[in-house]
Design a binder for these strands. Structure first.
Lengths: 343, 343
DNA sequence: ATTTTTAATGTAAACCTTTACATTTCTCTC
DNA sequence: GAGAGAAATGTAAAGGTTTACATTAAAAAT
């Protein structure tokens, strides 16, 4: 079973041609004669030859690899984006290497080094932060990097995002329209641009309705179910000051808030309305089904890879780049976790 | 900004040594003198050199890549396994390339070809099927492939699994102990070995309690929430023949069954007990919290990568191989979705 | 029939490493 | 201080491709 792997040389010998001809037969079929092409084909079949991708990539000075930096692959939100990216990438002949950074700057830096060392041809960032090495070199307009999901302020790289501010505004507005005035917000972690934007949208909606926002109605979570439970317990502890509605920055946290609400005997939505964010599959199957902001995850991924491929294709900075970030639309999915304000 | 990337030659020139010395300074530091090592270090810093991994790999005839074949990366069940694998791999200097096969044999074959073409050094299969190319060549005992999650009957490759039969037995037994006798089973798709094993465990439990299993109490799903809803609607439609308990082969399907049960006004667990499988994070936060079989996902991943690294390290077939599959223990987590049989 | 043009193939360099082997430079020892 | 042995470094090949350039063969034009 020590069967040696066939190289292009073996094929050439078998077919009675030079290795150059074999290579051409494979990559520029129109330049070799019909008959030799056939000879090469049979020789390939006979030897079971498959090109050594590493040698090929070395010669072409590429890796065929697109690096995808995600903060947490365990989060189903990211895995859908991924499948959009994957499809586009593999169509264009690229593989997707996933770097799970766990929000660790060191891991981010390690992965970013892949770009320099030719281990990756391009990079898509889902984690809302420029890895240190990139941040130093003023992110130049031609580097093959695309940012998705979280915009990076002051960064000129192509970006595809949703309008978090507006989406959060719409979600909050929905609660206001239902008559709620004591509306809490469970946000993401500090320092995250998503957090900032969504808090801004929330505040803007309150303001537009003439409601003054109370700082203690904003609770910082971390997008997880557990942090949602903690938020719910904190916000609902005091029956006197309790909000009648909660707007959450993730579905997981919305679920957590509902769990906490049920703990203290509150009914959803009769006693408390809850809005989520993302529309993960579980949101629709929860009890009650959760009203939430649907992010077009697949589209986000598709747009990101499209932007990147565009960039890889033409060296000139793409048109997209100058026209600001690509914004994909969100949609408020109204289900049964929200209802009129209890009187 | 057309800054050329520094090669080992640039470093050598800068340091006034040969490229061989530079290479040695990096990989066999003890063999070069203190002073030159320092010269090399400063030269590296000055040039900003990072080794071209592709050239290195070509020379060493390896790729540093471990291919992970999963049926669906969107399933959170797999993403946890992944993080266990990822950790071990990166410690050993490998990257993990994820191949999302979507259960498509063609995609499986494409990915499996990576092994032959040196694009990957090894492979971990989470999808319970040998890709065609491997299946043909009688999976020889030394090929760097490890199977996880789903055993492949008659395949001698190292395997790490849970005892699905036993876990399903325990879950069903739990319902029997609560006094249930009309117990349904919502299984995975046909042809999946998980399905077979879990159905077997279910049947074995019934038999051990002297209950004859009724074929129409077994519903084939596909692990998704939606298929669980369908299962629930089908099984609970007729109030006369309705089971008092349902044992599901995934948490998603358990959630689906509960959704369907609530549709027809059944209370969980007073009117219907439901058991899930996997213990995904959402299981604990559901209403009611779901009794389920916890799979040690991270451990599964860790074991798989350990087995693989063991294999890559020593050419001789590892000890593990002969001692049959590695079985990691599961645990029945009893929550509030199961209760005594209604009288 | 001879030259010119075109098509098909071959030769060899380049991509960037690592490492076996050869060579040089030390450091001892007598 | 010469010779041996050890330590450090250098030279060059190898790894499997792709491709610019050179060469040959065939077809077209004179």
């Amino acid at each position: 079973m020590t069967e040696k792997i066939a190289t292009i040389e073996d094929v050439a010998r078998q077919a009675g041609v030079s290795i150059a001809t074999v290579s051409r037969a494979l990559h520029k079929p129109d330049v070799v004669s019909e008959t030799t092409r056939e000879k090469v084909q049979t020789a390939i079949a006979a030897t079971g030859y498959t090109a050594n991708v590493m040698a090929r990539n070395l010669r072409l000075n590429r890796s065929g690899m697109i690096l995808l930096l995600v903060p947490d692959i365990g989060n189903p939100f990211f895995s859908s984006i991924l499948s959009g990216i994957e499809k586009g990438a593999s169509q264009a002949g690229y593989n997707v290497l996933i770097g799970d950074t766990q929000n660790d700057p060191e891991r981010e830096a390690t992965y970013a080094a892949y770009l320099r060392s030719n281990q990756a041809d391009a990079m898509i960032l889902l984690n809302g932060r420029l890895p240190a090495p990139l941040a130093k070199a003023p992110a130049n307009a031609t580097s093959p990097v695309v940012i998705a999901c979280e915009r990076i302020p002051g960064c000129a790289l192509p970006t595809v995002i949703i309008d978090n501010d507006e989406a959060s505004f719409v979600a909050t507005r929905h609660l206001i329209d239902l008559g709620h005035t004591r509306i809490a917000h469970v946000s993401g972690p500090t320092g995250n641009i998503l957090t900032t934007d969504r808090v801004t949208g929330y505040r803007r909606a309150l303001k537009s309705a003439g409601i003054t926002s109370e700082p203690n109605l904003i609770y910082r979570g971390d997008f997880s179910i557990d942090s949602g439970i903690a938020a719910g317990r904190a916000l609902l502890a005091d029956a006197k000051t309790r909000p009648t509605a909660v707007c959450c920055a993730s579905d997981g946290m919305a679920i957590g808030v509902i769990v906490a609400a049920k703990e203290v005997g509150l009914r959803i939505p009769q006693d408390l309305s809850v809005v989520g964010f993302d529309d993960i599959p579980h949101a629709a199957a929860y009890d009650p089904p959760i009203t939430t902001v649907r992010q077009p995850r697949r589209r986000l991924g598709e747009q990101a890879i499209a932007l990147l491929l565009d960039r890889l294709g033409s060296k000139i900075p793409s048109a997209h780049h100058d026209s600001g970030p690509v914004i994909v639309p969100t949609e408020l999915i109204i289900r049964q976790s929200t209802g009129p304000c209890p009187s």
